[in-house]
Amino acid sequence: MNADGRRTEDALELLSAPAEWDLPPGRHLHYKDVLMQQIDQDLGHAPAAAPVSAPAPAPRRRLTRPAFLVPLASTVLAGALALTLTGTGGSPAPAPADRAATGSAHAQSASLTLHRIAVAAMASDVTPVRDDQFVYVRNLTVSNKGTFEGPVKLGAPHTVETWTSQDPRPRKTLGWIRESGKDAVMPDETIPIESTDAVPAGIDHPTYTWLSSLPTDPDALLALLRRDVRVSDGESREQAVFSLIGDLLSQTLMPPRNTAALYKAAARIPGVKEIPDAVDVAGRHGIAITREDASSATRDEWIFDKRSLAFLGARGFITHDKQKGITTDTLMGSTAVLQRAVVDRHGEESAGADS
């Protein structure tokens, strides 16, 4: 970045009033489809407290990138992609020049908003996490309950709790998960989330200590993520990085300076835009930061509170599918973060969130 760019960024930070960061970011990992696939391959019903194993990599299309907790796992939505389509409206399509100008304006707006969010993150107060502790996240989620070959059928919203181990040593058991409510798989069972191979601290197992060691310069951080990110078949590297950043911001705890650096890095990814209004599965409206990926025909949204700039939740869409006749956005999953905290044992719930 040149000197003028640096000065512009510094000015944006100074002019942006730090907003209250009163709800920690979060983004749900879709284990339900992984579990359902595993159950279908077994006896046709849910065994008692079966571990969530990491299946082989699947092709494109996921709501979230389960980079940690379930390394290499997929949300297994590749064959189940047709729900209620969002209408495009009856307005005539804008001219190419108008579309280019509109896209540029949305990108500039997204960059400004992400810098404001980064400033808000710097004003937060995060308690350091010890290596012997767990990061606890409680989400409200709605996910696909349809068959792999058939259309997407979103189930009822239900609660998903995860406990991520902070142990930096290579581990096969990276965390624990528990679902409750209607359409939960193995309701109220606390299940280990396991990998075939032992996974050390890193992108596939991002502990607080490892996250603290990442570069805080956005350009250096983005270069590192581009180098190390796991790219799925049919997915662009830029989308893989965008998804990875969303997961790191949502399912972990890290020092404020690292959180801010991730938001600034996201602002540098081509194709990132802002949507003025979006709603998470809990019904909360906010500003959305989004990126559409032509390679994988997907679009991800991160939703933030308009006042506090807190991360509220996320949505994932299929943008088109010629085989199924999809020509516009089709929702394939949505989540809302309810709580995030530090606990001493898996299965333990926290009385309050650690923001």
Rank of each mutant, 00 (worst) to 15 (best):
A240I: 10
R65D: 11
S213W: 07
S180C: 07
A341R: 05
H45P: 04
F148G: 09
R178Q: 10
A58C: 10
P170K: 08
E235H: 06
D125R: 12
R178P: 04
P24S: 07
R138Y: 02
G26T: 06
K32N: 14
D98Q: 15
L12I: 11
V34E: 00
D4R: 11
P71T: 09
A267R: 03
D132F: 11
G202I: 14
M1G: 13
T319Q: 11
D197M: 13
D204C: 10
G271D: 04
L249I: 12
I191D: 01
E235F: 08
V199F: 09
K145L: 06
G89N: 12
A58E: 07
V272I: 09
G90D: 09
G175M: 05
T252C: 08
S143A: 15
G44N: 07
D40K: 09
V279L: 08
G26P: 01
E274D: 12
L112S: 14
V241L: 08
P96D: 09
V142R: 02
V76R: 10
K324L: 13
K145P: 03
L29Q: 02
L29G: 08
N2F: 10
R226T: 01
T159L: 15
R65K: 12
G246C: 13
A314P: 00
V70R: 05
Q339E: 13
T75R: 08
A265V: 05
A220R: 14
T209W: 14
P25A: 07
I193E: 00
E161A: 10
R60M: 09
S91P: 05
K32I: 06
A54H: 00
F311K: 01
H115Y: 12
T330D: 13
I203E: 06
D33G: 06
A3L: 14
E274H: 13
R284G: 06
H158G: 00
T196H: 15
E349D: 10
T162H: 13
A50S: 15
Q339R: 03
S213Q: 10
R116N: 02
P47F: 15
R268Y: 02
R226Y: 12
G283A: 06
L35H: 01
L35A: 12
